Amino acid sequence: MAEVLLFHHAQGQTPGFLAFADELRAAGHTVHTPDLFDGRCFHDLTEGVAYARKVGFDELLERGVRAADGLPHELVYAGFSLGVLPAQKLAQTRPGARGALLIESCIPPSEFGGPWPAGVPVQVHGMDADPIFSGEGDLTAARELVESTGQAELFVYPGDRHLFVDASLPSYDKDAAELLTWRVLDFLSTR
């Protein structure tokens, strides 16, 4: 079974985010869910992003990196949207990574000293018409990542929702979320 460091999105540790972590635990995986927002949750994505800007994206990234301190190096790093920042940085820069799950975001590997590290498989998930994932360059970065390494898989779901996996949000898409969860569990079963 895999050990996973899972980072939340810009609305914080919502009930849907925590339920996703529990689903991975129910499959036998160890899942760590650090709170980068010090207990704050936001009902609206815009409010969460405003809070992230106030704290500073660099500070949130460093909080995520510090969350790995004291944990084994042999982790799968995972994140939703904003949480992809620390997940991807750790997967690329912390020795021993077993894999990465980048959900609804992807950063060009060059931002973290790229290229993507050898021996670290990665899945990227997002919706094809999501104005954030598709419209802000994440989908392009994901396609470039897949082209640059034989260790990357890109799964694009039909739809225009951001945070479609979080069952506690109006953006939840049950069918896409179930398929994503099945793919994630399959990925984790080999780590």
Rank of each mutant, 00 (worst) to 15 (best):
M1W: 02
V4N: 03
L5H: 04
L6C: 12
H8M: 08
H8Y: 00
A10P: 12
A10H: 12
Q11M: 14
G12D: 09
Q13A: 12
T14N: 09
T14I: 05
G16F: 02
F20Y: 07
E23S: 11
A26I: 00
A27D: 08
T30D: 12
V31G: 09
V31S: 07
H32D: 11
T33A: 09
P34F: 03
D35F: 05
D35W: 01
F37R: 14
F37D: 15
G39E: 13
C41R: 15
C41V: 14
C41D: 04
F42G: 09
H43P: 15
H43V: 11
D44G: 04
L45H: 13
E47P: 10
G48T: 11
V49D: 07
V49L: 08
K54T: 13
K54A: 15
F57A: 08
D58V: 00
L61Q: 15
E62S: 05
R66C: 07
R66A: 09
A68F: 05
A68G: 06
D69G: 04
D69F: 02
E74D: 15
V76T: 06
A78M: 15
G79L: 05
G79W: 01
F80W: 07
S81W: 02
S81H: 11
G83L: 09
A87G: 11
Q88A: 02
Q88K: 01
Q88F: 02
A91C: 05
A91Q: 05
G96N: 07
G96A: 14
L101G: 03
C106E: 03
I107L: 10
P109W: 00
S110N: 10
F112Y: 08
G113N: 00
G113C: 01
G114P: 03
P117K: 05
A118N: 08
A118Y: 01
G119S: 11
G119M: 09
V122W: 06
V122A: 15
V122I: 03
Q123E: 15
V124H: 03
A129I: 08
A129R: 14
I132F: 13
F133Q: 08
E136W: 12
E136Y: 05
L139I: 02
L139P: 09
T140M: 07
A141G: 03
A141K: 01
R143K: 13
R143H: 13
E147Y: 00
E147F: 00
A152I: 08
F155T: 05
Y157P: 14
P158G: 06
P158A: 01
G159M: 04
G159L: 02
R161E: 14
H162N: 05
H162R: 12
F164Y: 02
V165H: 06
D166M: 03
D166C: 13
S168N: 08
L169D: 12
L169Y: 03
S171L: 06
S171G: 10
K174F: 00
D175S: 09
A176R: 01
A176I: 03
L179Y: 06
L180P: 07
L180C: 12
L180V: 07
W182M: 15
W182P: 01
R183A: 06
R183M: 04
R183N: 05
V184I: 07
V184R: 00
L185C: 00
D186E: 14
F187Q: 06
S189Y: 00
T190G: 08
T190N: 14
